[in-house]
């Protein structure tokens, strides 16, 4: 499909707060991006009018239970049919920060054998605890399955900010090794926290900002069409958003975050 025909749905509820900058990123790349209140999408039943779906960052419904949990249950209750169709048709779904938490809570990730009724992973409270806002380095670990990053070289180091209190990716303790193996086997691992040179953080704070298992920052489903990540690509879109742009004499116009949005768009251009 043609780029200008692509319609991205950026979904929001009360407490979502990164929708505007996510829209800016998509629009800068020449696609149509609309911010829709989830209530409206339910009322109009028009989710399938869109080619891609984004769950942006924020504190959906205040995240009062567990980050993302309330919105996830809300989605299951009110939109599960459309979401499943969206998922099954391999239209891309992106979850950033709170969106990642929602996708995990709703069973869309890691979704080893399709959407699950209960979450198979968790984004637990940071270790060390508390809200942290900082720029981190991410190593791209995907071998080509993830449609959002298939243009990014394996092993490339990207830079983006994180800002969350609940981003510690965890599997159930007893299934940790098994699930990790499956992530690798299915090529579902997308981003891991690393240092400037691409060496794994090995759980060391603040290189790994939240104590995530295996330094995991982002994963996709086995089909590669659903991506969730804690860092914010929309805040690393332009050069002037970088933390040290005043030090650089020659800055590329875009930051690394652009690669992810571009990957999604190119996938749609090719596949549909």
């Amino acid at each position: 499909m043609k780029r200008e025909d692509i319609r991205v749905c950026i979904l929001r509820v009360g407490g979502t707060n990164c929708d505007a900058e996510t829209q800016t990123a998509f629009e800068a790349l020449g696609v149509q991006a609309e911010i829709l209140h989830a209530n409206d999408v339910v009322k109009r039943g028009n989710l399938m009018d869109y080619d891609a779906l984004v769950f942006p960052g924020g504190f959906s419904f205040g995240d009062y239970v567990r980050a993302g949990a309330i919105w996830a249950k809300w989605l299951v209750a009110k939109l599960s049919k459309e979401l499943k169709a969206f998922f099954d048709e391999e239209r891309p779904i992106l979850g950033i920060c709170n969106g990642f938490q929602v996708l995990v809570e709703a069973g869309f990730l890691p979704a080893f054998d399709g959407i699950t009724q209960y979450p198979e992973a968790a984004l637990a409270t940071n270790h060390p605890p508390g809200y942290h806002c900082r720029w981190v380095y991410l190593k791209h670990e995907n071998r080509g399955k993830c449609v959002f990053t298939c243009n990014i070289q394996e092993g490339k180091v990207l830079r983006m900010p994180v800002a969350h209190a609940e981003g510690r990716f965890l599997f159930p303790k007893e299934k940790e090794e098994l699930y990790l193996e499956r992530l690798y086997d299915n090529d579902q691992l997308v981003f891991r926290y690393c240092d400037k040179n691409g060496n794994p953080a090995d759980g060391v704070y603040p290189i790994n900002p939240n104590g995530s298992f295996h330094d995991i920052a982002g994963i996709c489903n086995p089909e590669g069409t659903v991506l969730g990540l804690m860092p914010h690509p929309e805040r690393a879109f332009y050069w002037w958003q970088q933390p040290d742009w005043t030090r650089q004499t020659l800055m590329p116009f875009y930051g690394d975050g652009k690669l992810i949005f571009e990957g999604l768009i190119e996938y749609l251009e090719k596949k549909f």
Binding site: N17, C18, A20, E21, T24, G57, G130, Y131, H132, C133, R134, P161, A163, H232, E234, R235, F237, Y238, W240, Q241, T246
Partner: peptide, 14 residues
């Protein structure tokens, strides 16, 4: 300062 989000909205230049 790190416990405050100082970048949300993506407009923070400095």
């Amino acid at each position: 300062v790190r416990t405050y989000d100082h970048e949300v909205k993506g407009n923070t230049v400095l």
